[in-house]
Amino acid sequence: MAVAQSPAQPAVAAPAAPTGSRRLAEHQIGRLLVLPALIFAILVTQAPFLLTILYSFQRWNLNRPDQRGFVGFDNYIFLLTRDPAFYEVILNTVIFVVGAVLASLALGLLFAELVNHRFPGRGIVRTMLITPFLIMPAAAALTWKNQMLDANFGIVDWLISLVGLRGPVWLSDYPMLSVIAVIVWRWAPFMMLILLAGMQSISEEVREAARVDGATARQEFFDITLPHLWRFMQLGGLLGTVFIVQEIDPIFMMTGGGPGDATTTLPYFVYEKARESFDIGRGAALGVIVVLMSIVVITLLVRLLDRMLERQEA
């Protein structure tokens, strides 16, 4: 990752300096305070990544350790041209992330709007809505896999049977939908928290003025609340993407990436290559590809963030 720029550059007087020497000292202090965290982050995150790059150019399968050696770009070429699962996995990842983030945002918006009005027990309802975010992902995945979605003893299919229909075997008939559902259940509350903060920063005067002008609740929501929330939705979408793309516990616990590769996302694919196929070289090459693709997405997202930062400063 080459996003970091070394801060070790001569400090120069800032434009609006009160006194030159004072500002000089401030720059040095600023650098000193940043360095420990920066060095730690570089060491812990970049050292394993360097090793990944090295391994990606090696043939190294733990089942055949004697055949280890450098093979140039062979692993990359294999993945990009011959691995039957590669493009399916990329498509899975896009569906998984986009679907989960958008659904979480939409549900989070609904939850936030619901509890942003006064009614008896509002605090309790908000507490209930926040709770899934606090649940350990592994515990959530197991509860959903068994007690909610099981075809024989699960609640969801039982409810469907009450209206006389036969529910599907969720994890094999709709595996991606099932995994996304669990992710959304945990991340919609997160979106709600962000959007609620956004709603509470709308001044009551604006709302009241709108009401005095005879705006209906729906007009108030679409004309005042929603435009104001745009920034918060961007923030939620951004953070949601970062966290959700890495969600691996539900896939690991619920489907193991299957059936076939139906729920294998890129991070899970990397893990599978290494821990199940014992193919360190290809796993590493895949890891590098994931990082390169992330850099593209990061660059786009960072531009968005940058715009948000500038607006914040303005």
Partner: peptide, 23 residues
Amino acid sequence: KKWKDILFFFISTRFLPAAGVIV
């Protein structure tokens, strides 16, 4: 200097999937 780059570097380290560097 470059405080924005530093901030983005930090947040970008969080983009790396742990699964990608587990080996």
